[in-house]
């Protein structure tokens, strides 16, 4: 049974910010409610105000602005998993979205809610690290932009009273876009190796206690940028979740991958390093023995997926770069 609270149902972000002024006590934003509603139902959360963001159109978009992919915070995992734009430009996010809970959960659960809930096992979180995503946060004191990584770990950088996550953005990741988000038209490509584009791939994987509808015991996201000729890793971002309070980047491992080919020996080495990471992250925990083994399977899944994508990319790269993700029909909302 829920305690009594007051509820606001604004239609726009501007209205939301206006309403804030009159609210006293604890404010909780409501996205899909998949975390908050059961928490209020059993009394773990007792906010004074609940502000429903689920019907604010400007928060529900998924679009490409020519440089970055921008998601509104109330984009649901169903929308994200089904978005051709995300599939193309941030595949690991689409993969993670498609593996959150059940259909019913994905139809409600939002990316913003996943971030704000900050569960150690939240499936979008390692993905946002791997994509080096940035958040736009709005509140009584105005707007701030912050990298998801800092938002997550830096004291004082998380959500402050009355603040809401408005949007999430990351650099477009397909061929035809640079890693930092600049769009590179095919004819003006200045990348090395005879004007060919770098290959960028990303993948997400998780291990739970059953095939589907399961909270991760381990999850991982990886982003790789490779030089197209020899398939040498130029840049990578690797993040692991469900090992401690927050998911984290593995910068040492990323460094070691640079300059190597994405072959089986790389996977073997990375796996070994991942096992060390597990040992370091949860030493002596009951789950350590299991997770240090199971991460082998996860690494095999994720890197196997990456290898597969690379070979597909290579095969199709002779057909020239694609048109990027700027297609109108791929955008939702806004």
């Amino acid at each position: 049974m829920m305690h009594k609270f007051r509820m606001a149902c604004p239609d726009s972000v501007a209205e939301t910010l206006e309403l804030l002024a009159g609210m006293e006590g604890e404010i909780a934003y409501l996205g899909g409610g998949t975390d908050l509603v059961p928490q209020m139902q059993d009394g773990r959360r007792q906010p004074d105000w609940v502000v429903d963001l689920s019907q604010i159109p400007e928060l529900a978009c998924i679009r490409f602005d020519g440089e970055r992919i921008r998601l509104g915070s109330t984009a649901t995992f169903t929308q994200i998993a089904g978005s051709a734009l995300i599939e193309e430009q941030g595949r690991c996010l689409a993969q993670a979205a498609g593996q959150v809970g059940s259909v019913q959960i994905r139809n409600r659960a939002t990316l913003g809610g996943n971030i704000a809930s900050a569960s150690p096992a939240g499936d979008s979180l390692p993905v946002l690290l791997a994509l080096d995503a940035k958040l736009t946060v709005l509140g009584p004191a105005g707007e701030r932009r912050i990298s998801f990584e800092r938002f997550q770990i830096e004291p004082g950088e998380g959500l402050r009273r009355g603040e809401l996550i408005a949007g999430i953005d990351f650099a477009a990741g397909s061929r035809g876009h640079t890693g930092d988000g600049r769009h590179v038209p095919a004819d003006k490509s200045d990348f090395s190796a005879g004007g060919r584009h770098p290959i960028r791939v990303s993948a997400f994987g998780k291990i739970g206690s059953r095939q589907s509808v399961t909270i991760a015991k381990l999850n991982m996201a990886a982003f790789l940028e490779m030089e197209p000729g020899e398939g040498i890793v130029v840049k990578s971002r690797l993040a692991l979740g469900a090992l401690g309070r927050h998911p984290f980047r593995l910068r040492n491992v990323e460094e070691e991958m640079r300059g190597r080919r994405l072959d089986d020996s790389l996977i073997v080495d990375v796996t070994k390093r991942l096992q060390e990471v597990v040992d370091g992250a949860i030493p002596g925990r009951y789950s350590q023995t299991y997770k240090r083994q199971a991460i082998r399977g996860l690494a095999a899944d994720v890197f196997g997926d990456l290898q597969q994508q690379v070979s597909v990319e290579k095969a199709s790269s002779s057909n020239g770069p694609d048109q990027g993700g700027g297609k109108e029909e791929q955008e939702i909302g806004c």
Partner: peptide, 9 residues
């Protein structure tokens, strides 16, 4: 049996 993750199908 997935001998790496211990999951049984």
């Amino acid at each position: 049996v997935d001998t790496w993750t211990g999951l049984v199908r």
